[in-house]
């Protein structure tokens, strides 16, 4: 079956990104495929590369990046949700004249159309985070 995942929950204050990661691992292990992972709302905070957790704790942002790169997943970060929460890529940093950018490699800022498109191309869309 073809799945897409929507992740609405922030790291640290919610378990959504970790639950979604475990679910995604189980999907692929079971022979399913993932069309797209869509970070939306507070979920876009999972796309920062500036987080520095203690060494003995989970680095959920890095785990998602590694997992996505290992499996060549299409990971989209909602651009409207991201910009207002301070998640920006090089292009947006240049456009808005910011000195820095922090979007993780292997993730792309794009619009809500990507969520609608994912819905059209997936057998199931599963949401994590209320």
């Amino acid at each position: 079956m073809i799945f897409s995942l929507v992740i609405n929950g922030a790291p640290i204050s919610s378990e959504a990104p970790y639950s979604a990661l475990r679910f995604a691992e189980a999907l692929l292990a079971d022979g399913h495929s993932i069309y797209r992972v869509f970070f939306h709302g507070d979920g876009v905070l999972n796309a920062t590369n500036l987080n520095v957790p203690p060494q003995d704790d989970l680095n959920i942002q890095e785990r998602w990046q590694t997992f996505a790169e290992q499996h060549g997943l299409d990971v989209v970060v909602c651009v409207a949700s991201a910009l207002k929460r301070g998640i920006i890529d090089e292009g947006e940093a240049s456009r808005y004249e910011k000195e820095h950018h922090n979007l993780r490699a292997g993730m792309a800022l794009s619009g809500l159309g990507q969520l609608i498109d994912a819905n059209c191309h997936s057998d199931r869309v599963v949401t994590f985070g209320a």
Binding site: V76, A108, G113, Q114, I116, N119, C120, H121
Partner: peptide
């Protein structure tokens, strides 16, 4: 990644 604008591949519409 898919295009930002609607295209023919969205013909398999789904009700949401």
């Amino acid at each position: 990644m898919s295009p930002l604008v609607p295209d023919n591949s969205m013909n398999n519409t789904k009700s949401t």
